[in-house]
Design a protein around this nucleic acid. Structure first.
Lengths: 217, 217
DNA sequence: CCCTTTCTGTCAATCTTTTAACACTATCAT
DNA sequence: ATGATAGTGTTAAAAGATTGACAGAAAGGG
């Protein structure tokens, strides 16, 4: 009965990049684009773009290409950016504060409504008008406000427990910045960040490049 | 003449995770582990672990498994963590400051030696003993200190120009946090972060989950 | 010292992802 | 109108990644 679903994560993870490029095209008043031209800008194959988009239906038109504004909006819908997501930050340290200051999340429908910490020196503070609350009131807050997403920017020692609690209180997604892998019931989606992994990968690439450097063609 | 190189990025990007798990095993005084047991902890297949490690040579022993400390050290070497990398941060805003406070980079051989900004109010400040310098002196600094890696945490307007300059001044790697894709000569390695992509992917997963939820199996 | 068990390295099979090819449709200039 | 060009959706082929299977080496117990 269910229609052909099951889109691979590889595809999904490319959508935000398409979305970003299309946003830039809109800013530059470009209203139509072909897969070929987009592929040149993005340094991917045109085939991949067409293949990816076709997972969700025919957005383009032969002989014309894609309407930029329409495609941008459609990808936004696929990603769920047409809905508002209520977010909180757990851990008002440096990273938490940095993320609280990101303006651009708001534009995509991600609305920060509270920040929580254990540190009495931070509680009561406000960041961009958002208050830092005592973590003791988080349960009540999450349940009453029906928070959708929590950004976890706290010490790794407490992350697992906090994540489990949030899951129980009905949170739908966790954006986890601590170096711990979280395994939660499947009604809670998790996206782990692991900043340090990127840095290590970079170190590898640097080493590898310097080894390859003086190799013949 | 060159030996069997060409290891896929898919493999490389898993190494930091192995490295982290092995580090935790060391902390727990576990000195040997089999691919099967590690696979259970990491929720991957044992076959994948063996296949991945074998790209770099035989680290294990039949009937025994892997020596945790040795394997940890070897993966560290593969990633280039046995070398010290001199780093700078360009952009002393919230994110720059947050990253400057990350203690754990130091442990992996990443040594922050300077922070740069245009804002006179920030210049002269120090973060964890690291000074914030005027961006005008960056060229001299990068050349004299032979900086390896720059973390780019600045407004996207100036990123491309800064990246090109740094490339010219001999930097080896860029860890780019701005929502811009950088294309540079191949002696400069780039690792883009795009935090917002993760958040959008999370939004997709939440939406997808709520759709799938009440499907019969 | 020998037998059983464990567990690797590796080869082969399967599954997934990417790229190429092309039939066919809309556009656009004349 | 019409022919040439542009450009999609889609199918098929190629490339890449993951998993399974197993021969045989080392470990460990009696």
């Amino acid at each position: 009965m269910s229609e052909e679903r099951k889109i691979s994560m590889a595809v999904i993870r490319r959508l935000p990049r398409y979305y970003r490029y299309l946003g830039e095209l809109i800013d530059n008043d470009i209203s139509r684009i072909s897969s070929r031209e987009l592929s040149e800008r993005m340094k991917v194959t045109a085939s991949q773009i067409r293949q990816d988009l076709n997972n969700f239906g025919g957005f383009g038109q032969q002989g014309y290409g894609y309407n930029v504004e329409y495609l941008h909006a459609e990808i936004g819908k696929i990603l769920g950016l047409d809905k508002t997501h209520k977010m909180i930050i757990v851990g008002a340290g440096n990273l938490g504060q940095a993320l609280a200051n990101y303006q651009s999340f708001e534009k995509r429908g991600f609305k920060l409504i509270g920040i929580f910490d254990v540190n009495p020196r931070l509680i009561g503070m406000t960041i961009r008008g958002i208050e830092v609350y005592d973590i003791d009131v988080m349960e009540k807050f999450v349940k009453e406000q029906e928070v959708d997403i929590a950004m976890l920017t706290m010490p790794k020692e407490n992350v697992r427990e906090t994540a489990n609690n949030l899951a129980e209180w009905g949170i739908k997604g966790l954006w986890n910045f601590s170096p711990v892998d979280l395994y939660l019931p499947k009604h809670v989606q998790v996206e782990n960040v692991h900043l340090s992994h990127g840095l290590m990968t970079l170190a590898y690439k640097i080493k590898d490049q310097s080894l390859t450097e003086n190799e013949e063609d």
